[in-house]
Amino acid sequence: MPDRYPGYDVLSKRNTASWNDASRQVIDARLAIVDSPEFFDERKWRTLRAICDRIVPQPAGRAVVPIAAMVDRKLADDHRDGYRDARLPPQREAWRRGLAALEAAAQARAGVAFHRLMTVAQDALLRDMQCGRLDGPEWDDMPADLFFRERVAHDILAAYYSHPVSWNEIGFGGPASPRGYVRMYFNRRDPWEAAEAKAGHEAAARDANENM
């Protein structure tokens, strides 16, 4: 994937008027999340990490976002969403059951743990889960497609897109208080926003982003 906002680092705004103290505290804490489990046991942790790598394949040569740990912390705190499809158990139980069921499917299909499968085989299993084609006693009536959508995709993607690295990737401005934005019209960029690389002008974008 091309780097659309070369050199843009939302964290370079940390000490500017775009970040209030509250935002600094929150993002600092997020960046300090340690990449190890508090909620999951070793086995489920390995499965979860392998899933995260497929849902969000992170580019090489960049600091890795500890997505699995972020999901793990949501469960450790049992921080819920405020609603639950009646066909799903509460989130902790859903995750435990779903991960065990995916492991069982990997074993049945290939005789190895999910995290040892080739990525194509992992993707195939995840796609089967997404389409509701996985079932068996381990699921205990929990629909696999619903688990995929409401837990796997929902929790993993919410975690990734709460991390500044993902904001750099999509050119999002990040925290903005007390300073917001001034230039509202098409193609108008405030000097504290990410500059996009236009074909042939990548260096100019990098320059703008690095000197924000």
């Binding site: 509250a22 997020r30 639950r84 009646a86 925290p175």
Partner: peptide
């Protein structure tokens, strides 16, 4: 002024996140 971060995850604290069951 002092307790709202510019952050979607953190600001979850404003929502009703106690369990409700939907069917």
């Amino acid at each position: 002024l002092e307790e709202f971060a510019s952050d979607e995850t953190h600001q979850d604290k404003l929502f009703w996140t106690d369990e409700r069951i939907c069917d």
